[in-house]
Simulated assay, not measured.
Amino acid sequence: MLGLSEDLDPADDSLTVWIERYLDLAVRGVRSAEVAAKIARHLQRFATWIAGGLGHDRLSAVTVREVTAWREHLAAAGNLGRDGTAAPMAAATVNNHLAHLSALFSWICAHATAELLRHGDPTKKVPPLPLPAPQPRALAAAQVRTVKNVVDRIETFHELKGRRRRGAAARLHAHARPARGRAIVYLFGTGLRRAEVVGLDLDQLEVAEVAVLRRAKTVRLRDVRGKGRTSRTVFLGRDARQALADYLEHERPGDATASTTPTALFLSAASIAARRPDGRLSPRSINTIVGEIGRLHDAQTSDPGRKLGVLRPHDARHTFAFELSQRSGHNRAELERRLGHANDRYLRLYINPPDDIAASYIEDL
């Protein structure tokens, strides 16, 4: 290997080898399985990029120029659709890739010989992409009303229909879990993030008995694990309590099969052969559930001002944050406590009103 000491194993100049060492010694078993998988995926993308562009994966050949070129590639064509079409990657996602690559090279610099990286860490001089100004995504009051209306009638959208079903008792599609979908939407309305909903366990619910849950006025989710290893208590409103009680009574028992260890609050349908061994929902499943409710909503309304386009889990969090900000008099401490966020950039975003409210402020000025 050109430029390396004769006593070095040639494998020591392999980017792929160093990535595996890093993952085994510093990531797997240290970070959650989901985060470790994401880091591995991002680093493998870089290794593939280097091997494809240079014809080899030598660690000593990674320069600032190569890292910069990879950043620009991700920004221009980092996403591949199901049809193989390349599309730009969001700036925040590109920066997440760069952060994982930077952590890798910081670790390599601390453990490898100086001859492998003679010019130092190649990621240090590659700045992240500037992020666009965050946009408020809170739903307008009219949209909130119609979303709740659709969610309250969600069973009717999952019923089997057709000539054979006329006059028969209503039956749902095999994988349909409307009560679960309703409960998830109302939980997002308490300020939870998608990852927090996925990670919820049944024992975090202060009151798990259905009868007590229906009549209780104060119910909490304890130790909700958020970003940065934070945890907080989340209070459940009336809609969330009733929706959770319906799910726990009518749907969850049938999905908590003997073949699983059903500690998760929300479970995949037992009829799905490919579900996880523990039955826990995946983040992608959450996106699908919420997105489908958004599509049903838009199909039910002809008012352009009420249409959502795409409903995302975070939209409900923004709506909750705006309402909390209004009712608490923009109390920063309360926003931090209930949202699990201390970043000024995002706290300011959460207090921004939806467009219809912002427009009404200046209508008569």
Rank of each mutant, 00 (worst) to 15 (best):
T230G: 14
H111V: 03
A321V: 14
L248W: 08
G340W: 05
P136F: 08
V27P: 01
L265H: 01
E249W: 00
E155Y: 04
E72P: 00
A243W: 06
G81F: 11
V210Q: 10
R327V: 09
L244S: 01
L267V: 00
W18G: 00
I19F: 09
T260E: 02
V35W: 01
V290W: 03
T16F: 07
L80V: 15
A321F: 09
I154M: 10
F46K: 04
D298I: 02
G291H: 03
A359W: 06
L116I: 05
G84I: 06
R295S: 08
T68P: 08
A114T: 12
P354L: 07
D315K: 01
A273Q: 14
L15C: 12
L267R: 01
A26H: 14
E159Y: 08
Y186P: 05
A36F: 04
F188W: 11
S302G: 13
L349W: 02
H56G: 09
L8W: 13
L25Q: 14
R312G: 09
G291Q: 08
T16Y: 01
P128D: 02
V67A: 13
W70T: 07
R165Q: 09
G29S: 00
E72C: 00
F46Q: 01
V151P: 01
I272F: 06
A47H: 01
V234I: 14
D364P: 00
F188N: 10
N331D: 15
T257E: 03
G291L: 04
T218S: 06
T319F: 03
A179Q: 06
I108A: 04
R153H: 15
V219T: 12
L15W: 12
D344N: 06
D7R: 15
R118H: 00
T85N: 10
T48R: 14
A211Q: 08
